[in-house]
Design a protein around this nucleic acid. Structure first.
Lengths: 252, 252
DNA sequence: CGGGTCGTTGACTCTCATCAACCCTCGTGG
DNA sequence: CCACGAGGGTTGATGAGAGTCAACGACCCG
């Protein structure tokens, strides 16, 4: 179980690499009013069309954003992991354009919209650091457009698995390309624009070729370079140099 | 020909609806160091992998962002119109993750990275307003993920045309759902994740059904509601309430 | 033990990609 | 003034990748 306060500290450390924070900035971050809440899998954190009243940060667990077309098809547009400041939209946009739903059981910290806006105005260095999060989110969305638009099922899924591997590694939640991915095949399908049936077959193919190993919700990538090549994966778009918190991650 | 200074003024008016700017903010924006340059169609403004040195704003003309997979397939991830502050990435991210290329002949204003960062730190209200642009960009990317991931060719193209209609209308470049779209069918294909051949056929179908009219690079949508329905288009994600500049657009 | 969720498999279908040719338009230069 | 070439648009024939439908199986939990 991660200590919530350590997550805030990791956030501060991450931000500190982007802009030199002063004591006021750090204090403002540490004393930012918030409420931490446990969210059960499948519960909504944000609903499309609502007027947002808060921003939130994942302390623990996984969540995803998705939209549903008028025909009822669901598309997952991003998956978020502990440490991700999701829904910065909620601080500045007037209406939510998508849903956010918990993937696994989550601990989520909620920050009132007004407090976020005040923080932004009073602490421009903090704002700058948070804005970088928004920019990186945007970069990942762009790569997802490419993924669903121009890759076949095989490389599409491989790409998703590569992305998770690197992001989780940086977050300290994957080791040697092994990690837990709490997504059903239906959710993988919604993230890749495929059908669950085809995801199933494609995963089997990748496994048969020794490119991945899977067992329940665990994924391992025994031959990283090979899978990377199949995926056409290049991690530039993750901007990892601006994501890592300096200082050692909490070891537990 | 648009007067460049009026574009900066429109930007200021737009920002003013997001956060109350004071005279210092306005002056900082007006005196922000920049160079306006003419970019010929097809020329690159930003290249994937480069270290960015500047941000830019489209004064006139159209531009698009795209990425190319290792297999050589191109995916256009966004199309930008006059008034769009593209490449805010360039102000804060350390490496470009995509290309920006001129679609038509453009007038583009370039702002040095250092000046942008200084502006952000000195004028938090301006930063907040610009950040909203980044958030709206992100929202549009999300919708594009849905578009290429979960809509068939027909509604995919219809959706793109609806999006352009509304954005151009707000920018004063479309009237009654008629506008000029300087994109080839190959570029439309790269924006929708289809092939040029299929785009051609789909456009013909839409035209035959009276849902669109086209003539060279001009597009008209004679039955907006009908096309909107085919596209499953809902403009929430454009956050137009936060895009319009208040005050009247420049009349010429 | 029963029910629900998720994963797996097979047979069949269909949308969209591919390949290849041809046409049209427009700008250029002899 | 016409020939030429290039870019973009159009058309047809064919095929492959992914979707659909439907059934069954594995696992988990109460």
């Amino acid at each position: 179980m991660t200590d919530p306060s350590s997550v805030l500290d990791r956030m501060i450390r991450k931000f500190e690499r982007r802009a030199p924070l002063d004591n006021g900035d750090r204090k403002a971050l540490r004393t930012l009013p918030h409420r931490v809440q446990t969210i059960e899998p499948g519960m909504y954190v944000v609903r499309d069309g609502e007027t947002p009243t808060r921003s939130c940060l994942i302390v623990e667990g996984f969540a995803y954003r998705h939209k549903v077309t008028v025909e009822g098809a669901r598309q997952i547009v991003s998956v978020h992991i502990p440490g991700d400041f999701i829904d910065l939209d909620g601080a500045l946009l007037n209406v939510s354009d998508h849903n956010v739903q918990a993937l696994s059981r989550c601990e989520i910290a909620f920050f009132p919209r007004a407090a976020m806006q005040q923080l932004i105005l009073d602490h421009p260095r903090v704002a700058m650091a948070m804005w970088v999060d928004t920019l990186i989110d945007g970069s990942i969305f762009r790569e997802w457009v490419v993924n669903v638009g121009r890759r076949d099922a095989r490389s599409r899924i491989a790409h998703l698995l590569c992305e998770f591997a690197r992001r989780l590694e940086v977050a300290g939640l994957a080791h040697e390309y092994r990690y837990e991915l709490p997504m059903t095949q239906e959710q993988l399908a919604d993230a890749t624009g495929l059908t669950p049936v085809h995801v199933n077959r494609t995963l089997q193919t990748l496994a048969r070729e020794g490119l991945i190993e899977r067992n329940r919700r665990f994924v391992a990538i025994p031959r990283w370079e090979a899978l990377r090549k199949v995926a056409g994966f290049s991690e530039t778009y993750l901007h990892l140099d601006q994501v890592k918190s300096n200082g050692s991650p909490p070891t537990q």
